[in-house]
Write a protein that binds this DNA or RNA. Structure first.
Length: 565
RNA sequence: GCGCCCGUAGCUCAGCUGGAUAGAGUAGUGGCUUCCGAAGCCAUUGGUCACAGGUUCGAAUCCUGUCGGGCGCGCCA
C-alpha cells in the first residue's frame, strides 16, 4: 500500500516537473508514514515540506499541486492537505481490509520476506565460558540473539546460530583447580583454596560426579569421570564437559538452539592461531617490546597498542578471537552479528584491528565495520528490594535456570527481549514472580487464547466460518476500533523487516502488546458470535487475522502462543 | 583522564532513522459481568523529554558542551 501511494506521488511529481510547475533539478525522496491519529487518515507523506526550499514554494501550495496531479486510484477515498503541509491519504474499505485476506491466506508466512535473498549471515551469541551455569546476563544474550536469528530467517537470510566456547584459556585452569580443591574437601574459605577459584556450589556437584565416575554426554563427546583426584587433565576435561552439558540443558529449556558450537581449543589444535600470528607479523603491524609481541592496534583507531603474545609465551585472548573471525570470513558470511554483553565492548576495536591488518595485506576486502556487534547493557537483578550482584567468581548470581523455574520460559524470554539492548535492564525477581498474572506476555497470549476459544464456541452454536466464504463480508469492518486493528495489522510486515535489519527484537514485543490491547478493547465492546452471519464472518475474520499475527510475532520472540490458558 | 551506552510520568520502559496535541505498562482513584474467557475493558490523576546552546519549515530524536548513572580502559578472558 505504501508502495502504491509512493507511485502515485512520484507520478504526480513527474507530471509537475514535466509541465514546468516544479523545477527539474529537485530530487524528491518520497516517504510514506502511518499516521498516529486517525483524523489524519491512514497514511501520510511529508514530501511537500521537504521540497519547499528547493522548489521555492510554500509547502501547502506544493501539497495542493501534488494532490491535483495525483492519478486516480481505486484504493483511496481522498487525499487532503493537513497541518504545515502533510498530505493525508484515506483508504477505502476494500483497500483497508485487504490485509485480512492477505493474512488469512499467508498464515504462518505472513510477515516473512525474501529481503535477505538467501545470503549467509552468522549470529554468534551467549558464548559463555564453560566454567559455570548461565546467568541472567547470558539469558538476555540468549533471548535477544535467538530472536535476531528468528527475525533474520523470517527476512529471508540463511542464518547460522553459533556458540563460541572459550575452552582454552586460563579460566579453564581455574575451573580445574577449583574442582580439584572440592574433591579434596576444601571450601572457598580454606587457606589452600585457589586464588581465582570458582566458589559456587555447583563446583561441588562437578567434583562429586567426577568421583562417582559418572558419564557426561556433551554435544560432541562423552566423558566419564576418572574418579582420580590426582589426574588434573581428567578433572579438567570432565569439568568442561559437565558444565557444557549444564549450559546446553539450560538453553534447551529456554528454547534456544545453535547450529554450530565452535571450540576455542580447535583453533589451537588446527594451528589457526599460529597461522594468524604469522599473518599479523607479515602485515607489518606488530613489534617486539619487553619480551612480548605487540599488535599496533593504534594503526586502526585504538588508543593504545595491545599485547598479542605475553613474555611467558602464551597468547592473549584476542589473538584466537582474530583467528576465529578470519575463519568466519573464510566460511563466507558476508554478515556476522556478534551479540554480547557491553562489558566486552573493548574487544571490538582489537578484533577489527587484527582483521584489517590481515585483510589489507592479503587483500581479503573485509569491511572495516565487519563484524557487526549488538551489545546488550548489563542486567541488574533485584531481589527483596536489593541488588543481587552478578559475579561468576563470587559464585552468587541468578541463573537462567532460576528464572525459568520461578517466572517461566515465556515470561523470561519476553521480559529479556522486550527492551532495547542499549538500555540497562532491571529484572525484579520478586515482581516477576509475585505478579505473574500482570506480565505483558500473558496479556498477549490471552488475546491469542481468546480467539481460539471463540472459534471453539463457534461450532457449539452449529455455526461455521471460513476465510474464503467470509471474504465478501470484510467491507463491513468500518468502525474506528476495527480500522485501528486493520492499520496495526498492515504495519506488521514492515515492522518485522525493520526489526531484522536493525537487530531490534524489542520492537516486535512492543508491537504485540499494542495489537493485543487493540484487540482486547475491541472484543470487550463487540460481540463476535452473533446471528448476523455476514457481520459475524467479518469480525471472526478480523479476530483470526489478529490471532495469526500474534502467533507469528510470538514465534519470532521464541514465546509460545497457547490455544487456552 | 579516555572510549562505549544511558538520562522521557512515582516506578519499569516505548517513541517507528527529524514530523502533527510526547505514549504504554505498573502504582493511585472511580466505574464495568443475567451475554463469546474479568489473566479483560472504560474513565481519571501524573511530563521543564537531565541542563544549555546549535542545525531547519519542524528536534525527545541530529551536532557540541555541561551535569548525573552504568560498563570498559591488564603481558585476565
Amino acid at each position: 500500500m505504501k508502495d502504491h501511494i509512493a507511485e502515485l506521488i512520484n507520478s504526480a511529481l513527474t507530471q509537475l516537473i514535466d509541465n514546468g510547475t516544479l523545477p527539474a533539478d529537485i530530487t524528491p525522496r518520497v516517504t510514506i508514514d502511518r499516521t498516529r491519529d486517525k483524523s489524519h487518515g491512514d497514511l501520510a507523506s511529508n514530501i511537500a515540506m521537504t521540497l519547499a526550499k528547493a522548489a521555492k514554494k510554500a509547502p501547502r501550495d506544493i501539497a495542493q499541486l501534488i494532490i491535483d496531479a495525483l492519478p486516480a486510484s481505486d484504493k483511496l477515498t481522498k487525499a487532503e492537505i493537513a497541518g504545515p503541509g502533510f498530505i493525508n491519504f484515506f483508504l477505502n474499505e476494500a483497500a483497508a481490509t485487504a490485509i485480512v485476506t492477505q493474512i488469512l491466506s499467508e498464515g504462518e508466512k505472513f510477515g516473512s520476506s525474501n529481503a535477505g535473498t538467501g545470503q549467509k549471515v552468522q549470529v554468534e551469541f551467549v558464548s559463555a565460558n564453560p566454567t559455570g551455569p548461565l546467568h541472567v546476563g547470558h539469558g538476555r544474550g540468549a533471548a535477544v540473539g535467538d530472536s535476531i536469528c528468528r527475525l533474520l530467517k523470517n527476512a529471508g537470510w540463511d542464518v547460522t546460530a553459533e556458540f563460541y566456547y572459550n575452552d582454552a584459556g586460563q579460566q579453564i585452569n581455574n575451573l580445574a583447580t577449583s574442582v580439584k580443591a572440592r574433591i579434596l574437601g576444601l571450601g572457598p574459605d580454606h587457606e589452600s583454596w585457589p586464588e581465582d577459584g570458582y566458589r559456587g556450589d555447583y563446583i561441588i556437584d562437578v567434583a562429586k560426579s567426577y568421583m562417582a565416575g559418572e558419564t557426561i554426554a556433551a554435544e560432541d563427546k562423552h566423558v566419564t569421570g576418572a574418579a582420580d583426584a590426582n589426574n588434573d587433565e581428567a578433572i579438567r576435561d570432565f569439568a568442561v564437559a559437565y558444565l557444557r552439558r549444564e549450559q546446553d540443558l539450560d538453553l534447551k529449556a529456554f528454547g534456544v538452539d545453535f547450529d554450530v558450537y565452535y571450540l576455542e581449543s580447535a583453533l589451537y589444535e588446527q594451528g589457526k592461531v599460529e597461522e594468524t600470528v604469522k599473518q599479523l607479523i607479515d602485515s607489518g603491524h606488530t613489534y617486539e617490546k619487553d619480551g612480548a609481541l605487540w599488535l599496533k592496534t593504534t594503526d586502526f583507531g585504538d588508543d593504545k597498542d595491545r599485547v598479542m603474545r605475553k613474555s611467558e609465551g602464551g597468547y592473549t585472548y584476542f589473538v584466537p578471537d582474530v583467528a576465529y573471525h578470519l575463519n568466519k570470513w573464510q566460511r563466507g558470511f558476508i554478515r556476522v552479528i556478534n551479540e554480547q554483553g557491553a562489558d566486552h565492548h573493548s574487544t571490538i576495536t582489537r578484533v577489527r584491528a587484527g582483521l584489517q591488518a590481515v585483510s589489507q595485506t592479503d587483500n581479503l576486502n573485509i569491511p572495516t565495520t565487519w563484524p557487526e556487534y549488538v551489545l546488550h547493557q548489563m542486567v541488574m537483578v533485584m531481589r527483596g528490594g536489593e541488588e543481587v550482584k552478578i559475579s561468576k567468581r563470587a559464585g552468587s548470581y541468578v541463573t537462567i535456570r532460576d528464572l525459568i523455574d520461578e517466572v517461566g520460559k515465556d515470561a523470561t524470554r519476553y521480559f529479556l527481549a522486550a527492551r532495547a539492548a542499549t538500555s540497562q535492564l532491571t529484572f525484579d525477581i520478586d515482581l516477576a514472580v509475585s505478579q505473574t498474572n500482570e506480565n505483558p506476555v500473558y496479556y498477549i497470549q490471552y488475546a491469542h487464547a481468546r480467539v481460539c476459544s471463540m472459534m471453539r464456541k463457534l461450532s457449539e452454536n452449529k455455526w461455521n466460518w471460513s476465510a474464503e466464504t467470509s471474504a465478501q463480508s470484510l467491507e463491513l469492518l468500518t468502525e474506528d476500533g476495527e480500522k485501528a486493528i486493520l492499520n496495526k495489522l498492515a504495519a506488521y510486515p514492515e515492522l518485522v523487516k525493520a526489526a531484522a535489519n536493525n537487530c531490534e527484537p524489542h520492537t516486535v514485543a512492543n508491537y504485540l502488546r499494542e495489537l493485543a490491547g487493540d484487540f482486547h478493547s475491541y472484543y470487550n465492546s463487540h460481540k463476535m458470535l452473533i446471528e448476523d452471519k455476514p457481520l459475524r464472518d467479518a469480525r471472526l475474520s478480523l479476530s483470526e487475522a489478529v490471532r495469526q499475527t500474534i502467533n507469528n510475532g510470538l514465534g519470532l520472540l521464541g514465546v509460545s502462543a497457547p490455544e487456552e490458558m
